[in-house]
């Protein structure tokens, strides 16, 4: 059970800008000795503001980018191993930010079937996979709809189903809610949590919305290509000043609890949800 699905060892990635003759002019280190490991069945959140390197990290897990230095091991395979490329990609499924730019099919069910078709799954099994995946994200009733008729949140759930249908070992979601409205965000986050709770799917959620990862098992905070904080949500969110210094927003209840504590109210560290805060305040009465 405790097998590492994803493990990076001193992962370094450098963007090299070249001039017209191909000589390097500028090197940007996007990832700087990143060590992140994810165990089977875990829900891991990766936080960071725009440009912190978190999306670059995500692209390494799916062999879209290759490390400049260090290694990335996905499901026991090195991502630089060309022979294993498609195995890596089918074991680490990716969901991207823009819902419009990752749906390929013109009918919901056909889009979900796209991945299995590429993997050469027999027709009959594609149908059963499509059905179970759409059911897992609660989109089964929309299977015959055109994606353009769906809301942003629904489109992202279709994208998640599309990845699920490939039967991956883990799902990596790269800011899946950044372009959604609050209700769309909520429905996508609910679907992601459902996958982890019910289907025991390993989930890596990359986001800059803190409140989406309060239920995660572990959180990594990235800044300037480095992992600067890691731990359980409680541990991470109890250090409000550090998060603020990292240009990250702290969940509302956590912020209020922290401010009350500064005023001398004896509240415990790491309050994450409204219910928790209300409960703790009642104890102080």
């Amino acid at each position: 059970m405790s097998m590492d699905i994803v493990k990076t060892d001193n992962l370094v990635f450098e963007y090299i800008r070249r001039d017209d003759e191909g000589n390097p002019v500028d090197v940007t280190t996007a990832l700087d000795h990143v060590n992140i490991d994810v165990k089977q069945g875990e829900f891991v959140g990766i936080l960071g503001h725009n440009g912190s390197g978190k999306s670059t990290f995500a692209k390494h897990l799916n062999a879209i980018l290759y490390p400049t230095d260090g290694t990335v091991i996905v499901n026991g395979m090195n991502t630089t191993d060309d022979d294993k490329l498609w195995d890596v990609r089918s074991s680490a499924g990716m969901v991207f930010q823009n819902p419009d730019n990752q749906i390929i099919g013109q009918v919901v069910e056909e889009d979900v079937g796209f991945g299995p078709e590429n993997l050469g799954v027999p027709t009959k099994e594609i149908w059963s996979r499509v059905e179970e995946s759409l059911r897992a994200v609660g989109m089964l009733e929309y299977r015959l709809k055109s994606p353009s008729r769906l809301s942003g949140g629904q489109k992202q759930r279709v994208s998640i189903a599309g990845v699920l249908a490939m039967h991956p070992k883990c799902i990596i979601l790269d800011e899946p809610t950044a372009m959604l409205d609050p209700s769309g965000r909520k429905e996508v986050v609910r679907a992601i949590r459902g996958l982890n709770d019910v289907e025991k799917m390993t989930v890596i959620l990359i986001t800059h919305y803190m409140d989406e990862v309060v239920h995660a098992d572990r959180i990594f905070v990235m800044d300037k290509g480095k992992v600067v904080m890691q731990g359980t949500p409680k541990e991470i969110f109890s250090d409000v000043p550090a998060l603020k210094a990292l240009r990250l927003d702290v969940p509302g209840p956590t912020r209020i609890a922290w401010e009350l504590k500064q005023k001398g109210i004896p509240l415990p560290d790491g309050i994450l949800t409204c219910e928790e805060l209300v409960r703790e305040i009642e104890k102080c009465r």
């Binding site: 009350l260 005023k263 305040i281 102080c284």
Partner: peptide, 13 residues
């Protein structure tokens, strides 16, 4: 805002 909320809760407590 959260500061307003904290103030208000602090006063009440």
């Amino acid at each position: 805002t959260s500061s307003e909320a904290a103030d208000s809760i602090y006063k009440a407590l």
